[in-house]
Design a protein around this nucleic acid. Structure first.
Length: 895
RNA sequence: GGGCGUUUAGCUCAGUUGGUUAGAGCGCGUGCCUCACAUGCACGAGGUCACUGGUUCGAGUCCAGUAACGCCCA
């Protein structure tokens, strides 16, 4: 094996091999229990960022783990056509050529988008491969491909025919830059520093009203002012008219409950065409609607002399004119939330327009029930609350977009008889009059109108087929919190509506990846870390493992480049442990490592020693721990458990311990030791595989655990020993406790060396005063181990407190006995006395707290018997310890 | 305005049903290139668990309130 692990070539090699050999693929005919996951389809314009890295690592860990459990596993990959985003990208390219999409027309434009997709659309999909994602690429889908488009029209037509899709004139969020309507979710509210302009409106027949607004330019479209009907201040004005400044129009004063008496002056201007609340006030009072803007955010003819001005330029002008005409009362700074386009960050304009909507209330009801009844579970559970909150107050979904890239709305209108209908395929004639003169709606559907079908459209719906039957409903969905409304909730609704079943059982909502200052990573801030840079510097395994190790379930994660060293260091550790074993394996002949790694260990129970049993027991425990954590989406705890097991148990303790055998001359022992380590290391590699797929696959082959055509991806997830097996190998809590105690003693002995500045290269003598004869015998049997671990030339074990060596020695109390370092003449008696005294004081303090509890009647009466017993035991233990410490202390005082 | 989250070692965070005197990694200090690994080994220092009050025999953990920071929705 190479001295240094070279992840770059190895990772590419294995990924290709896995993919080419179909290891990511499964199908219903293979039978078994299904496990399916659909990827949150990244935008086809996307490039891999840390959020993707986290999201997909989580999925891959789950998917690889379930696959190893023998589940019939499919991870469905694909990309989203991302209507507005993709159209923006291609429009930008066109602009560079000095053209606008209208210059080339719809058809040519769409050709350009498809070309773009062909050339650049595969970027993120290639990058997911670098990450190691075990997606079934043979199933890869795209929201605009034929099958998915069919699902979209099917769903649209069904909803249309049921009356759940309607067209209406409402205030929508309009992006003047993208030139399209947006859904409420696509308009992101941002706190913005603005102003509150107080404007005077003269009352016809004398007097005036002062009102406050944050968007003065919209006054050009005012058709009323409103006050609260219960507001005494303005009672006399209701029904009168006021003169709209600058426009010299008379508009009525209406009374409406919507008006907040506390806000500003308690009077608001009503602009039905440019504010959703005003729109509803307008409806209630039959007010005219005056749209004063164009789709691009400039003012139209209805804005009078302001025609042609951009909305913000117009705002300036209007304010100036109000000031010079004496209508401006005051201007205050004002902080308020302003909607921004989620694609281009332009300030969204609420604007009246004719759009298509989905009636959501009837769809929401079963979806709410699905979560309430536990058919869909959120992890962490608190997100259910967010889900319910939104679902119970759901508003109709604006699904039409005034762009070209997307699924065109399949609604047709007959020019001859005005019949409007929806059709899944291009119609030949009008279903009413039979004429062929009809037109299709110009708009396309919101991108999410295809994504909400993703869990079943990707499996071939609406066609009835084995994949759909077998893999639907899927099992786990991993995604970010900001996607709950956009996607998760809508998928649940679509699943309930069209499949009569939920789309997935578990939703794991993970956190956001932030920089180390807690800021969201973004291009504009320039604080992003490119996952590919991490892969290039440290490897995909390091990226994956580090991310999993530092990300607590559902919590945000703060990253910087250095944090990924932990994964790199761990990979190196594992590699070196393997290299060490391999070195010794090569000295033996005729050993079937493959069998040892895959079957029940062939060990000679008689040759097993307590340290070996300890390793087996710890390995068994870690199998249980990791499995349990994965079941609960506690991927961090799973990673930590393996990390700790491999690093501390396997390498620091057992591998060092094994050296006495491996460098020894007894071949039976060498065989036994390597057989034992092979069994354990193979299990550890399996447990690690979901987190570090590449390294574990490489070692699986290098170590000869798998034949050249076997992959660790498909070996079975390790199982803990049965009770019989555990008994055969002599595993017991007692044995584990003994080895733990022995390690405590070794650590104490090393600390003594360290305290006395004894160079690690020096071999020294130790004296161990064991607590009893049994401990003495056991330690005696382990003498060689102890000598090695303590780097000692001689260890004298004596029983009881009577040390044969009359001299005072530095010593530390342990469960098995007192470990002492005889240092003739070198002992600083005073220092040692102080050291023991400190230990003694600490122990007495501890005992006092235990005794305080035990003398508390309430505790003894009410605490569970086991807890009380535990404290009693502690009390005895501490008392004994104190006694021994006092003896030790007196030695130094006497000396 | 409504909701949610966070606050534990210098830093980043674990701590699952309340029960030993609270753990990890990084960083820091000391000593080591000891025959897998200096991307390492050994040893060590470091915390009145944000604050106030309550429940309890017992609170980092449960309840109420306060403060700071962050997120979501209106």
């Amino acid at each position: 094996m190479d001295k240094h692990y070279d992840p770059q070539t190895i990772e590419n090699k294995w990924y290709q091999w896995w993919e080419q050999n179909g290891h990511f693929h499964d199908e219903p005919a293979n039978g078994g229990e299904p496990y399916s996951v659909v990827i949150p389809p990244p935008n086809v314009t996307g490039i891999l960022h840390m959020g993707h890295a986290l999201n997909n690592t989580i999925q891959d860990v789950l998917v690889r783990w379930r696959r190893m459990q023998g589940r019939n596993t499919v991870w469905m990959p694909g990309t989203d056509h991302a209507g507005i985003a993709t159209q923006n990208v291609v429009e930008k390219a066109l602009r560079k050529e000095g053209m606008h999409r209208r210059d080339i027309g719809r058809e040519k434009f769409l050709e350009r988008v498809w070309e773009w997709r062909k050339e650049y659309g595969g970027t993120i999909v290639r990058q997911l491969r670098k990450l190691g994602a075990s997606c079934d690429w043979s199933r890869e889908r795209f929201t605009m491909d034929e099958g998915l488009s069919e699902s979209v029209s099917e769903v649209f037509c069904r909803l249309y025919d049921e009356g759940l899709i309607y067209r209406g004139n409402y205030i929508v969020n309009w992006c003047p830059r993208c030139h399209t309507a947006l859904s409420d979710e696509e308009s992101e509210h941002q706190e913005t520093a603005g102003h509150l302009w107080h404007i005077r409106y003269p009352v016809t027949g004398g007097g005036e009203l002062v009102l406050a607004t944050t968007r003065p330019e919209t006054m050009l479209g005012d058709t009323a002012v409103a006050v609260n009907p219960a507001d005494e201040r303005y009672q006399s004005l209701i029904g009168k008219t006021v003169m709209l400044p600058l426009m010299n129009r008379d508009i009525p004063v209406v009374a409406d409950d919507y008006v907040d008496r506390e806000f500003g002056t308690g009077v608001v201007k009503i602009t039905p065409a440019h504010d959703p609340n005003d729109f509803w006030v307008g409806q209630r009072h039959n007010l005219p609607v005056m749209d004063v803007m164009n789709g691009d955010g400039t003012m139209n003819e209805l804005a009078g002399k302001y025609v042609g001005l951009d909305r913000f330029e117009c705002r300036k002008q209007v304010v100036e004119d109000l000031v010079s005409a004496g209508f401006m009362v005051k201007i205050e700074p004002h902080q308020h939330a302003v909607g921004h386009c989620y694609r281009c960050d332009t300030v969204v304009e609420p604007r009246l327009s004719k759009q298509w909507f989905v009636r959501m209330k009837p769809l929401a009801a079963p979806a709410i029930e699905a979560v309430r009844s536990g058919k869909v579970c959120f992890t962490p559970q608190r997100w259910e609350k967010t889900y319910f909150e939104w679902m119970e107050n759901i508003r109709d979904w604006c699904i039409s977009r005034q762009i070209w890239w997307g699924h065109r709305i399949p609604v047709y209108t007959c020019n001859a008889c005005a019949r409007e209908w929806a059709a899944k395929t291009n119609p030949e004639k009008c279903p009413s009059c039979g004429k062929t003169d009809f037109v299709q709606d110009e708009d396309v559907l919101d991108t999410w109108f295809s994504s909400w079908l993703w869990p079943f459209s990707t499996f071939g719906w609406p066609k009835e087929n084995p994949d759909l039957r077998f893999y639907y409903p899927t099992h786990d969905l991993a995604t970010a919190p900001e996607i709950i409304f956009f996607w998760v909730a809508r998928m649940i609704m679509a699943g309930c509506k069209f499949m009569d079943d939920v789309p997935f059982r578990n939703v794991y909502i993970h956190g956001t990846v932030r920089d180390d200052k807690g800021r969201k990573m973004s291009k504009s801030l320039g604080n992003s870390i490119d996952p590919l840079d991490i892969i290039a510097k440290y490897s995909a395994d390091s990226l994956r493992f580090s991310l999993m190790l530092i990300t607590s379930t559902g919590m945000d994660v703060y990253v910087n480049m250095e944090k990924f060293e932990i994964g790199r260091n761990f990979a190196t550790k594992v590699w070196n442990a393997a290299r060490f074993m391999k070195m010794h394996m090569e000295k033996l002949e005729g050993v079937d490592w493959h069998a040892l790694a895959n079957d029940t260990p062939e060990l000679d129970a008689a040759l097993l020693r307590d340290d070996d049993r300890h390793l087996l027991a710890r390995c068994d425990a870690v199998i249980k721990t990791v499995t349990e954590h994965l079941e609960k989406f506690r991927l961090q705890d799973g990673a930590l458990a393996i990390y700790d097991f491999i690093w501390t148990d396997f390498c620091d303790w057992h591998l060092e311990y094994a050296k006495q055998d491996l460098y020894g001359t007894d071949e039976a022992r060498r065989r036994q030791m390597l057989a034992l380590m092979t069994g354990v290391f193979a299990k550890a590699l399996k447990l690690l595989h979901p987190y570090m797929p590449f390294l574990t696959e490489e070692l699986w082959h290098q170590m000869g655990y798998g034949t050249s055509d076997e992959t660790i991806m498909r070996v079975l997830w390790p199982q803990p020993f049965s009770t019989t097996e555990a008994a055969t190998w002599g595993l017991s809590p007692e044995v584990t406790a003994y080895v733990d105690a022995k390690r405590e003693l070794v650590t104490a002995g090393r600390a003594l060396r360290s305290d006395y500045n004894i160079a690690p290269s020096l071999f020294v003598k130790y004296v161990i005063q064991s607590v009893d004869v049994a401990a003495a015998e056991r330690l005696q049997a382990d003498l060689e181990t102890l000598k090695q671990q303590l780097r000692s030339e001689e260890i004298v074990i004596v029983t009881g407190t009577n040390c044969s060596d009359k001299q005072a020695m530095p010593g530390t109390l342990c469960k098995l006995g007192t470990v002492c370092l005889p240092l003739e003449g070198l002992v600083d008696v005073k220092t040692e006395a102080a050291r023991v005294k400190a230990e003694l004081d600490k122990t007495i303090g501890f005992l006092k707290s235990v005794e305080a509890k035990l003398s508390n009647a309430g505790f003894v009466d009410k605490a569970p018997a086991a807890v009380v017993a535990q404290q009693r035991e502690k009390q005895q233990e501490l008392t004994a310890t104190i006694e021994r410490l006092q003896t030790l202390y007196s030695t130094f005082r006497a000396g």
